[in-house]
Amino acid sequence: MDENRIRRFSAWRIVEHWVFTMIFAVLVVTGLAQKFYTLDISMWVIFRLGGIDYLRLVHRYAGIACLAVTALHAATALACVASGRWRPSMAITGKDFSDVVRNIKYYLGIKGRPALCDRYNYRQKFEYWGVLLSAFIMVATGLVLWFPIFFTRFLPGDVIPAAQVMHTNHGLLILLIIALWHIYNSIFSPEVFPVDPGMFTGHISRERMVREHPAELARIEGKTIHEIIEEYNDTKIRERLDLN
């Protein structure tokens, strides 16, 4: 195996990612067409799908698929973490908060090096939990909107417009987070541009592991974190850390 590449994601995780991406894309297109119904482009989408009724059906079944993928993932993750097969690497810890502060200080030039992150940094954790929780919020509010008569049997009526407001706003929020944060981090960020290969090949370069996930790399290679830091190839950081 190539010494310079580190395996990060198994085939299953990659398949899961791209299935979810497709479902997400369908939900975004059909959802936005409903949210911004006065736009011509929305009308175009709706007519392509054969009318609003079909579009709503597609949106709802995509929602069901979204629930299935999310639930399957959550169940797998819980089972694997509980059985000890996975480390609880996505768990939010106190270090994540100090990492945020550390990184902002580093960006502003106050600190010499960025936070030393483990398998997932705080940005990835934020996206992961954001998407996971949002998926459950969107599915829950979506079901309320799909079956209003059933839900008003035991819930007050204003839950329906509340669910509507939440569904539409939260949908926009999650879209903006993905479109800005995730697309930046995995495509346009100068550290990965033109694309982060992690979710295509499952591997990333060892060099990126050094910079982005030194704690994990140290664990994999049985080294101390300081030994890893010394491999930083960023001259400015090396200068500031006096590693040369």
């Binding site: 008569i149 008003t152 049997r153 007050p156 009526g157 839950v159």
Partner: peptide
Amino acid sequence: HEGATENFPDAWLSHYKP
């Protein structure tokens, strides 16, 4: 809406802005 209950009309905000 077959089966609508007493609560159901409250889903309608009575033409008012919330």
